[in-house]
Design a binder for these strands. Structure first.
Lengths: 183, 183
DNA sequence: TCTCACATGTAACTAGTTACATGATTGC
DNA sequence: GCAATCATGTAACTAGTTACATGTGAGA
């Protein structure tokens, strides 16, 4: 039985060997906008993956700190990862609190709601600028690696482009709400 | 202590009195694209809201079926709903499996991944068309109620516009992925 | 005859959260 | 002296899921 978190961990381990600690830190870049993990979830999940033969680990002794458990993906793990990447998405329910708020907006003073929607509009415009910054940086890099879909650079680029697309959609919708509430 | 589901239920009860059964069915329109509930979650949540004095109920006897418990919002409930609608969003972590897949796309055959991304592109284009249909319907209605932010029609419109914005962003990003994988 | 709509609930499970627990080293 | 980084884990809780449980009446 495979979980999304499990597959995500395999995805990272397919690139390089890592400890549980490394894995929780790996999800701190732009990808963290779309998925987060706590170490308290990573350690048990690694244990489960190991039990299923998807990963294995080597203990690297240390002094003064707990020994490092360096995990690597097994051939079985690579197979499972490949199968997951090609499998259809099983629909995950969207849970969008802002949509609920919009749906209830008539139940409060428009002025109070306006403050909320203005705040969110601003927040998403800021996030959009950040992602557009990442995009500009990547596109300014020399070489054509960015277009090579087998490169790590492309994977990064794809995530950044998703961030740009989504934050732009958010910002525009919030602006639309604000415009209507301002009447 | 207030939950998002609790506030959503209050939002519906602020419009009209409803049973738990009605409430779970209310979340079946376009709003269901953004929030879903099962009756197994609604009944306990209504009990909790009642304990907190946010709602109260009348028993309407029936024959052949369980008696209806018709819930209505209390003044305290209305206050809580208003406060919620104006409160800042506490950031809910995004969990986007497609982003993870994009991030791992180099770990599999581009051809297999392509089938997946093409499928999703299609699915989101279809959903976009559905939402654009709702939008056209609403905008074709006579009268100016659609622009009245205190109307139910506007609340509906806002949700539909969010659907249009998001599905368009999805469809465009998937198309971008497909174009690069075909590259 | 069988399925769907009505109408209420409970129980067991899953994936995630925060908080608890330990302890050395490095830099402000 | 205090906080952050390294490094491992466990425990208790929350919000959601699926499945269990019951029973009538209407329509294909």
């Amino acid at each position: 039985m495979s979980t999304t978190l499990g597959m995500a961990l395999l995805g990272f381990l397919a690139r390089e060997d890592l400890t549980g600690y490394d894995l929780s830190r790996s999800m701190k870049g732009p990808i963290s906008h779309f998925w987060q993990v706590r170490h308290s979830q990573v350690y048990p999940e690694l244990a489960r993956l190991e039990q299923e033969g998807m990963v294995e680990h080597l203990v690297v002794p240390q002094t003064g700190k707990p020994d490092r458990k360096v995990f690597s993906i097994t051939p079985k793990g690579r197979d499972a990862l490949g199968a997951w990447l090609q499998s259809p998405l099983e629909p995950v329910p969207i849970r969008s609190e802002p949509s609920l708020r919009a749906y209830c907006v008539a139940q409060t003073e428009p002025q109070g709601a306006l403050a909320f929607f203005r705040g969110e509009a601003r927040r998403h415009r800021d996030t959009l600028k950040t992602f557009e910054g990442y995009q500009a940086e990547l596109e300014a890099l020399p070489g054509t690696e960015l277009r090579d879909v087998r490169s790590e650079a492309f994977a990064h680029y794809a995530v950044v482009m998703r961030g740009v697309a989504f934050e732009r959609a958010q910002a525009e919708w919030y602006d639309w709400m604000v415009a209507h509430l301002e009447g």
